[in-house]
Amino acid sequence: MTVLELESLSVRFGGHLAVSDASLRVEGGRVTGLIGPNGAGKTTTFNAICGVVPPSSGRVLLDGKDISSAGTHQRARLGIGRTFQRLEVFGSLSVADNIRVGQEIRRSWSRRKAALPQYLDGLGDPSPDVELAAILTRLDLVALADQPVGALPTGQARLVELGRALAARPSVLLLDEPASGLDEQETDAFGDLLLQLASHGLGILLVEHDVPLVMRVCERLSVLDFGQIIAEGTPAEVRANEAVLSAYLGTGPTPAPGAPGAAPVEAQ
């Protein structure tokens, strides 16, 4: 089921077209990848989805409803959650308090039981403390619960951002380079976590530079270049796409023999 859809979205900054006519679907229960070289417009796309920058044309649909004119906080209330490429944690608060703020803001506007996230399965609609504990456990942050986030290394601070976003119980989660700053092992565990979250019904849109991670967790990938979607498909299809390769590696006059296009897909 499609939860989030972009219809020919464009974002213009002065004379610069940062996102141009981009269309994209995010399915519930799956991880969708959005990749592309630096400066391709991925973060701008995120900002347009959650209302931080206004689109110059096109529509954003959530569960089929047009939310293009809603404000940032209204979109959050409708179920869009996100993390940030450049961390936006609450540095002066502890890890637990960061997540609590997410919970408390949700509880301040939502009296309805937002779709219960499945990692809370079997807990009914849990008390905030139980939910907090569940999130901390799920993200492996229990030991750091009382640490001020400002003192954490980037990788863990990113997990705190994720936990905070989960606490708002979104139906779509936008993750902007969540794995940068994690080591190899942590990245593996993080991939498992994403798959688990998705398997419980959450729609995830993932921007990530760690290609192996993207290839592992995403069912579909869109590739953004110069603000345009240049390819869309399964990871294997995208990998074999010549346009994608040239976007990443540049197009020389003649592609070198043995170029990555011919490389076996299952490199791991």
Binding site: V211, G258, A267, Q268
Partner: peptide, 10 residues
């Protein structure tokens, strides 16, 4: 030839 591994993982 080392580039593709560095870029697209391996």
């Amino acid at each position: 030839h080392e580039l593709s591994t560095a870029y697209l993982g391996g």
